[in-house]
């Protein structure tokens, strides 16, 4: 990896520290979580709140399901040459009672994971530009 600065691929969606979290919101009235952030209207039909607080979502969860991308996705995805297949997981967050998609860290294949396996959130490069390395969240299997 070059000495370029690391910046988020999508601004404001996750913290950029060593123990990163996705940044969502929580309805201050009914407690529903939202990711991506929702700040204008609560989508719970029992609630008409317009008040939200920013929250860091749980950075660990369990795999709900998983797959991979064997072919280069179309733009706006920016693929390295040559293209390397990558693994994708849908992860259940217990406290938030929601499932969040994301790539799985480089080097982990579909043969290495199972439904129900615990994972944690980390940051890895999504692609590079001339100026910086665009970082995204990825799921990493937890030992044990």
């Amino acid at each position: 990896m070059s000495g370029k600065p690391q910046n988020p691929a999508i601004e404001g969606w996750y913290t950029m520290d060593a123990s990163p979290h996705l940044i969502g919101t929580r309805c201050t009235d009914c407690g529903t979580y939202f990711f991506p952030r929702q700040t204008h209207y609560c989508r719970n039909p029992q609630c008409s709140s317009t008040e939200f607080e920013d929250v860091q979502l749980s950075r660990t969860g369990r795999i709900w399901s998983y797959t991979n991308a064997c072919y280069k996705p179309p733009e706006p995805f920016i693929a390295p040459e040559p293209f390397e297949p990558f693994t994708i997981a849908a992860v259940e967050l217990e406290k938030e009672q929601m499932v969040v998609l994301g790539q799985v860290v480089t080097g982990v294949s579909v043969d290495d994971i199972k439904v129900g396996m615990p994972v944690e959130l980390v940051l890895e490069p999504l692609h590079e530009t001339d100026e910086d390395i665009k970082m995204t969240w990825k799921w990493q299997p937890l030992a044990g």
């Binding site: 999508i10 709900w64 706006p76 995805f77 994708i88």
Partner: peptide, 28 residues
């Protein structure tokens, strides 16, 4: 990034990704 369709393609998530997630659950 305000368009969920744009976001998922940017992150490398295509239509077959979703079909495959459902299929894998059936297997597991």
């Amino acid at each position: 990034p305000e368009d969920p369709d744009w976001v998922r393609f940017y992150l490398g998530i295509t239509n077959p990704t979703y079909f495959a997630l459902y299929a894998r659950r059936r297997m597991d």
